[in-house]
Design a binder for these strands. Structure first.
Lengths: 155, 155
DNA sequence: GCGCGCCACTTGAAGCGTCAAGTAAGCTGG
DNA sequence: CCAGCTTACTTGACGCTTCAAGTGGCGCGC
């Protein structure tokens, strides 16, 4: 079967988009690495915990909200635990679950790190775009996410 | 100084966009890994070489067009060389330069792999969006790239 | 014309992610 | 009531990326 190659126009959209897909995460990582000595993914974990009641969440739920495998999360939480920002405790009601809990030091880390990160997100994306472009971006992202994982939108 | 947090609206665009930034590269990688047993980045290197006259490019130029460090490229090209898809030869005119050259087997690998990859790009992005959304996406991506690296647009 | 520095690359070690295998808690059927 | 399955998580090994330290060709100053 003859493949449906991208047209000239399609390529001219795809190429810059693909480049952004590579460079934007690298740029966000670089800012956090430089200013806070943590990974973008480590930041996501801390930030998510900080937004939640009791700053506590089961490992499997945390994995799902940060789009990671349980294995990846387990390794990362181990490192965060060693740095004193998170601790783990078995869930009292059900011994199979493990709760990840943001410590006071972890909370302070988030408070210290978030403004610089938000500033970078603004600088590179939010403030670079008009209001209507931002809405378009939301629509586009949702559509792509839907295609990647048709079941995911359900939360 | 009080940080400028994202507004509700801004967050509602940023969150799906950030999720896409994580999941789309993972999805593209997964397809290539599954169907062709190569990394997305390895594919990029082979594909770029295949598009160029003589299928030959200096390492440093290749690094720049695929947005990678020279070190990363060096490691990857070594692996591609071991698999027989690329070979390296010092540039005749200037012994400091190394040319990366796509072999016949490498060419065949690209020809065999490209249609499936393009199909996945269509499925997840290009065919998921309208023509005008695709144009918007190009504009948005260019704007963000400009912010990340103001000098880069010059080629 | 040769020493010194720079440039293009290579290498090795350390860190993070993934995959597969392991462990331990709780449910379930007989 | 316990054997075996399932679920939630952990661990270890391997692969890829990064970072810092090499290596070697080439040009420039004197």
């Amino acid at each position: 079967m003859e493949p449906r190659w991208l047209s000239q126009d399609e390529q001219e959209s795809w190429l810059p988009f693909a480049a952004m897909l590579i460079k934007l995460p690298a740029a966000l990582d670089a800012q956090l690495q430089r200013d806070a000595d943590i990974t973008h993914f480590e930041y996501l974990v801390l930030a998510r915990l900080s937004m939640i009641r009791d700053r506590t969440l089961r490992m499997s739920e945390l994995a799902s909200v940060v789009s990671a495998s349980l294995s990846r999360l387990s390794h990362v939480v181990k490192r965060l635990e060693q740095r004193g920002w998170v601790r783990r405790a078995p869930c009292p009601e059900n011994g199979r679950f493990t709760n990840a809990i943001l410590t006071e030091a972890g909370w302070e880390k988030v408070v210290a790190t978030a403004p610089g990160h938000v500033e970078e997100v603004r600088r590179l994306v939010v403030d670079a775009l008009s209001e209507s472009e931002l809405r378009q971006l939301r629509e586009i992202s949702s559509r792509v996410l839907q295609r990647i994982d048709p079941d995911a939108g359900t939360w």
